[in-house]
Design a protein around this nucleic acid. Structure first.
Length: 466
RNA sequence: GGCGACGUAGCCAAGUUGGUAAGGCAAGGGUCUGCAAAACCCCGAUCAUGGGUUCGAGUCCCAUCGUCGCCUCCA
């Protein structure tokens, strides 16, 4: 079974074949850094982290580039509003975003280029587009000439004629066609600006990604990713520019994640229905966010609300239950139980790969993992020893690792309180043996109030943080 | 208005080439337990609606209703 990937460009799933055997060039549009990142950014980053991890698991060497847009209208506006330097503002949020990604256990991209580090190359690219007549200068701005591109609209399924008829585009007399877009913007007073053959200015939004792709990955790449809100105009324009320049098909596979839905609608700053990554991680383990993303198709809208968060918190607990050790004094499981465990282990491995091979069907893959959880827990309940559980648990750890799950139990590491809790639990055990249940229950209840859950077994009591 | 996606049990959600519906959460019953907790076992849907193609459709076609995204900056 081989990997199949859904391509927005062709609107179907096709077999995944790279330009160069064994190597994947992947570019994912990163954020414009003018504010704290929200859970929607987290979703996108997680989706492509999962893609990358799986490709790596399949044996590919993945060159993963994610940019930071660190100069644009919004950054300038926010910086002016706060009375700070735009570059400093961008720097601050780049740092914060990097930390968010690390906290979410997202692998750092191979490279994180920034628009402001690519100015020379952008200018060179604009120049070449002008030379080939694909662009024109107007009052210090440079526009891309969409009519020059016979394929314009192929990614988003739009036709120029129809878009013009749409008429929600504001008219700009300097443009030859209303759909022409700026690849270089002349600077207004007080704005960050760089010298160019067309006067002081800064790059347009779309051109930076084209330039970075060209510079860091080459004229053709394997995967280009981003949120589906970027399909038009951003990615459409990227294709137009890059292909106008190279004359070759740009990205082999265009992958787009669906939007995270907060209370039924996409998050937006204007609606004020934002949940930042920082907010989320204050309340929940990173694995919960990842599990939410994993549990549905990456291309579909993702339902995100308290109920979903709660459900996935429990689901994480269930996954973690598979890693619990054997029962104390486990006597060993029967042949039949072990056979069953072994069968499930193989079924899970196969099912996991089949699912992920089908356009990264992580929800299906998770289903397979839960089947293995049940089998492991069953075996444990049937007295399997640690040694008997180990093979299945190892595979389980390997596969959850492929999905980027950290699988750390929620306990806050070893704390200095541990010894005291051990003592209390031990004393409570004495109380139980002397049938002083009232006091024993009181101890359990008081500890529960402090977040310590006690579990009694025939062989004794254990405890864990809630 | 144009383009696109989606509508599966209380909630989330999977379901390549059509052959009678994964998994998670919640609810309920049971085993275990002094009582709990944890774990284990049992239990639920004919797939928005209406037509059509077919021996047979959640899975293809048409229509209707509904939700969402994009068309302007947005992961």
């Amino acid at each position: 079974m081989s990997l199949r990937v859904y391509n927005t460009l062709t609107r179907d799933k096709t077999e995944f074949e790279t330009l160069e055997p064994g190597k994947v060039r992947m570019y994912v549009c990163g954020p414009t850094v003018y504010d704290s990142a929200h859970v929607g950014h987290a979703m996108s980053a997680l989706v492509f982290d999962i893609v990358r991890r799986y490709l790596t698991y399949k044996g590919y060497e993945v060159h993963h580039v994610m940019n930071f847009t660190d100069v644009d209208d919004k950054i300038i506006a926010r910086a002016n509003q706060l009375g700070v330097d735009p570059a400093e503002l961008a720097e601050k949020y780049i740092g914060e975003f990097r930390k968010n990604l690390a906290d979410l256990n997202i692998l750092p991209a191979t490279e994180n280029p920034r628009a402001t580090n690519e100015i020379d190359r952008i200018i060179e690219m604009v120049n070449r587009l002008l030379e080939s007549d694909a662009a024109y200068v107007a009052d210090g701005d440079v526009y891309f000439r969409v009519e020059k591109d016979p394929d314009y609209g192929k990614l988003s399924g739009r036709k120029l004629a129809e878009m013009n008829a749409g008429a929600r585009i504001r008219v700009d007399d300097r443009k030859e066609n209303p759909m022409d877009f700026a690849i270089w913007k002349s600077a207004k007073p007080g704005e960050p600006a760089w010298d160019s053959p067309w006067g002081k200015g800064r790059p347009g939004w779309h051109i930076e990604c084209s330039a970075m792709n060209l510079h860091h990955l080459g004229p053709q790449i394997d995967i280009h990713g981003g949120g589906n809100d970027l399909i038009f105009p951003h990615h459409e324009n990227e294709i137009a520019q890059t292909e106008a320049l190279t004359g070759k098909p740009f990205a082999r596979y265009w992958m787009h994640n669906g939007m995270l839905q907060l209370k039924g609608v996409a998050m937006s700053k204007s609606l004020g229905n934002m949940v930042t990554i920082n907010d989320f991680l204050k309340e929940h383990p990173a694995d919960v966010m990842r599990l939410i993303v994993l549990s549905s198709n990456y291309r579909s809208p993702l339902t995100f609300n308290d109920e979903v968060i709660e459900a996935n918190e429990r689901a994480l607990d269930r996954l973690l239950s598979a890693l619990k050790p054997a029962l104390p004094n486990a006597s060993g499981a029967s042949e039949e139980v072990l056979e069953n465990l072994d069968e499930q282990l193989e079924a899970t491995q196969k099912g996991f790969i089949d699912s992920m091979d089908d356009d990264f069907n992580s929800a299906g893959a998770l289903g397979n993992l839960f089947d293995l959880v049940r089998a492991i827990n069953q075996a444990r309940a049937e007295n399997a020893t640690d040694e008997q559980l180990a093979p299945a648990q190892d595979v389980f750890k390997e596969l959850t690792g492929v999905l980027g799950l950290q699988m750390k139990s929620s306990e806050t590491a070893a704390s200095s309180a541990d010894a005291f809790i051990d003592l209390l639990v031990s004393l409570r055990q004495d109380l139980r043996e002397s049938k002083n249940y009232a006091l024993a229950d009181k101890v359990r209840q008081e500890l529960a109030g402090l977040g310590v859950v006690i579990e009694d077994t025939a062989q004794g009591s254990s405890w864990r943080w809630e």
